[in-house]
Simulated scan of single mutants.
Amino acid sequence: MPLDLFAGVPVTEYAVALAWYERLLGSPPAFVASDTEAVWELAEHRFVFVEQRPEHAGHALHTIFVDDLDDLDAIVAQIAGRGLDPAERETYSNGVRKATYRDPDGNEIGFGGAPL
């Protein structure tokens, strides 16, 4: 059974979030669903969307896992080139690493990778 995944991020101010997520993800959204919702396709059938829902803003916790640590390093460097630095960097005992970013509302978007 084919599935699509839409991971939602509630935000306080749509315009502020739109600009921040364009910097984080490196592109404008794949499509705009409404005046207060934008959607990015990260990979086939895998989407992240922001939606203006102030009453829920700041509570999202998502991690995007990449194939290997070289990919992770490249992504973190690209994001830094767009002016965003991780709020946290972690290395777990099994060698998995994670860089966590926090949007203006405090939602956490992490990028992780494991050694090959």
Score class of each variant (00 low, 15 high):
M1N: 14
F6A: 08
F6N: 13
F6G: 06
A7Q: 07
G8P: 07
G8H: 07
V9P: 04
P10H: 03
V11Y: 07
V11W: 07
E13Y: 11
E13M: 10
A19R: 06
L24N: 07
G26L: 04
G26N: 02
S27R: 08
P29I: 01
F31Q: 09
F31P: 13
S34E: 08
T36R: 13
T36H: 14
T36Q: 13
E37Q: 15
E41N: 09
E41W: 01
A43I: 06
E44G: 15
E44K: 13
R46C: 10
F47P: 05
V48Q: 08
V48K: 01
E51K: 04
E51S: 12
E51C: 09
R53Y: 11
R53E: 14
P54Y: 07
H56Y: 13
H56M: 14
A57F: 02
A60T: 12
I64A: 01
F65W: 10
F65T: 11
D68S: 10
L69R: 10
D70F: 02
D71Y: 02
D71N: 10
D71H: 11
L72D: 03
D73N: 15
A74I: 05
I75N: 07
V76D: 08
A77R: 12
I79E: 03
A80S: 15
R82G: 06
R82K: 05
R82C: 06
R82H: 02
G83D: 10
L84G: 02
D85K: 11
P86T: 04
A87E: 14
E88R: 12
R89E: 15
N94D: 15
V96T: 13
V96D: 09
R97I: 00
A99N: 00
R102M: 06
D103P: 01
D103F: 00
P104I: 00
P104E: 04
G106P: 05
N107R: 02
E108I: 01
I109G: 03
G110S: 13
G112R: 02
G112F: 01
G113T: 01
G113A: 11
A114M: 11
P115W: 04
P115D: 03
